[in-house]
Computed example of a mutant assay.
Amino acid sequence: MTDNDNGIRGRIYFPGSPWPNGHQIASFNWTALLHPQYGSYISDASRRSPALAMCFELTTEDYYAKDGTHLAAGEENEDDDDASSDDWRSRVVWNNYNKCWIGPSQTSSAPGIPVSDGTKPFDFTCDEYYFSANPLPVDWNNFFQEQAFGIYLLGHDAVADHKIHLHSRQPDGSYTLDWSGKIALYYAGETDFEYDFIARVEGVRFDAISLFYVNPTWAKEYFGLDLDPNVTPHQRIAPFVANPDDFRIEERNGVLHAVYRT
């Protein structure tokens, strides 16, 4: 694995694809969001209560990059399967879509993985964590409205059965992350989760909690909620994190974030 500018080292593998050695991860973010309507952990919850949700996001280098170097013109077709091969095994098809992104769903009303409903705060100092989301089988009637993560792979596909393990905590607070899941090539009309991804990333550190969803103006506009504008950001996160004093409030692109200590 190769270091990126932010110290992240990682690769992602898609078994059976044209690249058995996988792809370097160009960027990786571990963040969270505080959502006023996420609900509890129960699947039939009304989703009216707030919750803290973990968000993980990765982007790969270009598919056609080879150990950090782009292939020469025409070289990308040398090892491609014949025209009868399926999309998963075709290097030409993959290169049409450039790179992979997996991150908090942009179609879901509740993206990410809930970790606290305010009754038991989340502790950011543990030695390891296990998270999971969207186990199989999925209900296609509401899958895209409730999926934790979206994926752009060979188009806007579907990803489920996430298993995430953060471990090997270092003195600087960074972790090694192992993330696996199942993929359906939904963009091509498939609904079977017959493909896999496996990612390992080193040097992962928690960044910040987005408070976009608890902005009083936006909460009213998007959710019809009347939030007290006098409640401070620290007061908002206090029920959900075990160590609220370890966060500082910072504005990023017009959105308040509770940034974790470095």
Rank of each mutant, 00 (worst) to 15 (best):
H70T: 12
D44C: 00
Y38I: 01
D157F: 03
L58S: 05
L52V: 04
F143W: 09
N142Y: 12
S90G: 09
Y64W: 15
Y41V: 00
N95D: 10
G74E: 12
Q170I: 04
G112R: 07
N134C: 06
F56N: 06
A72R: 01
S43P: 03
G118R: 07
G173M: 02
K99A: 15
R169T: 11
F56M: 00
D127T: 10
N134D: 15
Y38L: 04
N98A: 14
L177I: 00
Q37W: 08
F122Y: 09
V138I: 07
Q145L: 08
Y152W: 13
D86S: 09
P137F: 04
I42P: 10
M54E: 07
G118D: 10
S84N: 13
A148L: 01
W179V: 02
S90I: 04
D127K: 04
H156C: 08
P121W: 06
Y64S: 13
I102P: 07
R47K: 06
Q147N: 09
H156E: 10
F144E: 11
G150Y: 07
A45Y: 09
S116V: 05
K163I: 02
Y152H: 15
N77D: 15
N95G: 04
G103H: 11
F144H: 11
C100N: 13
I151W: 12
C55E: 14
S84F: 15
Y175R: 03
P137E: 06
Q106L: 11
A45I: 01
Q37N: 14
M54I: 06
Y129A: 01
H162K: 00
P171Q: 00
T119C: 05
E57M: 04
S46M: 12
N142Q: 10
W88M: 02
D87A: 08
S46R: 12
A65T: 12
E76I: 02
W101F: 13
W101G: 03
L177D: 05
E57G: 02
W140Y: 13
F131K: 00
D67E: 12
R48F: 09
